[in-house]
Design a protein around this nucleic acid. Structure first.
Lengths: 331, 331
DNA sequence: TCATTTAATGTAATTGATTACATTTCTATA
DNA sequence: TATAGAAATGTAATCAATTACATTAAATGA
């Protein structure tokens, strides 16, 4: 494997000149440049960026920590972040944490060890204090999911308002008994969505009934199970709001298996607008997050941090949207 | 940001000693080790791995190039590869190429620039010669999808045999007019699956009919479209084999929209066994690839290359499995 | 007790680049 | 033609670690 020294020797110039050619800095004569470029090609020389990065103290690499790549929700977030990064000459790599705090810490080491310039958390597992302390020393942002109380910039939607809007939609079309499929976890989004559900009921004078709340783990199967639970109680709900699309689709399946018609017998609303939401049967009414824009904004905020620009705000809230499809209104 | 020099000075020892403590090499007295560790903690010191990696000429990082993280097929492949890597003290990062040859090249630069020790292609875009030339100089393997003629180790299933088995299954339950939903691309898997389809027909004395072959792009919508095309021809097929589950699910939707019953009126077989295959209605008969094992095998082969072990074979073929569900046989 | 081995630590070279500073060569102007 | 200024190039320090080799101190054995 040839080094810059080899190239310099072979071309009969100094390493500084070779470096200048590689980096296109001025003050290299056309002939010399030509000669060096030829030598580089001849020797099949590839600069070792460990050397450059060490010297320059930057890597132009950004890490994105994902709880799981199989969750379709993240694809567009990542795309937005990548597009902004590339436009600014940065590369992006994805780290699959599996929601495992140890794997998360492993990847954080790359940041701490100066192997990456910044990091975006899609769903942090470490606690708010650890998060804050990392953020003090390295450029990081939280995107979409976040830890409450952590002093770390974040981009998010208003989950409470979104859930409120979803449930109000159900109330608006005449439903009074509305089931909730939530999740038992510590995510802020979960709590906020539950709050939005309760507030919508309250504002419409509907009493909260804990029998109408079931829990899943965001996946299809857990939604199927929760849906079955909700549909088997006396005085069953006429509508269900699930905090994830996959669980909503599971609930629809539960309804169909019991011979119930969606939306005639039971209306269903999901959350996230994953691509399958428009493909399932019936297509799912859901809350759409501006996924691409969330990703863009997160990367912009991170790059600003890296480039030392003072940022005015450490929280950006983007708009969500209620997408009404046939799972709530038959047309 | 403190360096090893700072720690050495603060602890009153040499940098060599600090390095020895960090790397747990022998010959450091218990007291000195204690003192150094305390100093490290006090200064909040984090080693800069750029220095270490430069000196050691290794990064312990493996790159996996994916055409798209939204494709559910890759999740388990990645998991297998990651598990093997971690067991061997390597980290894994994912690179989203979006099937864009330029983005693929961008990430390949990381390998060439010594920022990673090895790389796994899940679906290479660059041509066989470029691939071969990279493989001569750096550790790489191809997993699942691959380029024919490239001299690069690969792990795969026998796509032709798998397609053959799928179509033979349809023939076995009485079908003679069997549609194919394929894709117009250069992937070996595509060609092999088409070959398997043709061979199954031939072996059963069924003539190939090009009117029964339609094309999509692996996605749900394209399957819906192709399904509609197949179902609208005179003398429509009574069964469809699609080379991806998402297209098969689209075809099922097309059938349902026309009031056809699956499998009574039309049987459908997919390929890949994505998680949604068992959730859709009816659950999909499909070919299951040993995704986790493919990922494991790929990483093992790559690590062997990195560690300079001579490998006996540059092709490993793992077993597939036909999973029969209600989209072909009602039970 | 003295020589020899072993353990603990230090000094300085090394890794592969970039870059501040120095030097040489060329142009253009007085 | 002499000279200032610019352009082209080179020398060597630097980045933050690891590690070969050297040195010192302690332990062991005769």
């Amino acid at each position: 494997m040839s080094t810059i020294q080899d190239v310099a020797k072979a071309a009969g110039v100094s390493v500084a000149t070779v470096s200048r050619v590689i980096n296109n800095s001025r003050s290299v004569s056309a002939e010399t440049r030509e000669l060096v470029l030829e030598t580089i090609k001849k020797l099949n020389y590839q600069p070792n960026l460990l050397g450059r990065n060490l010297r320059r103290a930057e890597t132009r690499l950004i890490l994105i920590l994902l709880p799981s790549i199989s969750n379709p929700f993240y694809a567009k977030l990542v795309k937005g972040a990548e597009d902004v990064a590339h436009k600014n000459g940065y590369n992006v790599m994805l780290c699959n944490t599996d929601s495992d705090i140890n794997r998360e810490r492993m990847y954080l080491e790359h940041l701490k060890n100066r192997l990456a310039d910044g990091l975006i958390f899609m769903s942090p597992e470490i606690d708010k204090d650890e998060l804050t302390s990392i953020s003090k020393r390295f450029p990081v942002v939280q995107c979409s999911e976040y830890k409450e109380g952590a002093d770390v910039p974040r981009i998010r939607i208003d989950n409470m308002a979104a859930a409120y809007k979803a449930v109000k939609h159900l109330i608006g079309i005449g439903h009074r008994r509305i089931g909730l499929i939530s999740a038992k976890n510590e995510y802020v989004s979960t709590k906020q969505r539950e709050l939005g559900y309760r507030k919508a009921l309250e504002d419409s004078g509907i009493d909260f009934d804990s029998a109408l709340v079931k829990y899943g783990n965001y996946g299809f199967r857990s939604g199927l199970r929760a849906g079955n639970q909700l549909l088997s109680i006396d005085n069953r709900p006429t509508a269900i709001f699930a905090i994830s699309d996959s669980m909503a689709i599971g609930a629809i399946r539960a309804a169909k298996e019991r011979g119930l018609k969606v939306p005639a017998d039971i209306a269903v609303v999901g959350f996230d607008d994953i691509s399958f939401a428009s493909m399932c049967e019936p297509p799912l009414t859901t809350i759409s997050q501006p996924k691409y824009d969330l990703g863009c904004a997160a990367m912009e905020m991170l790059l600003a941090q890296i480039q030392g620009k003072p940022f005015e705000t450490d929280e950006i809230v983007l708009e969500h949207e209620l997408i009404i499809r046939q799972s709530t209104i038959d047309c």
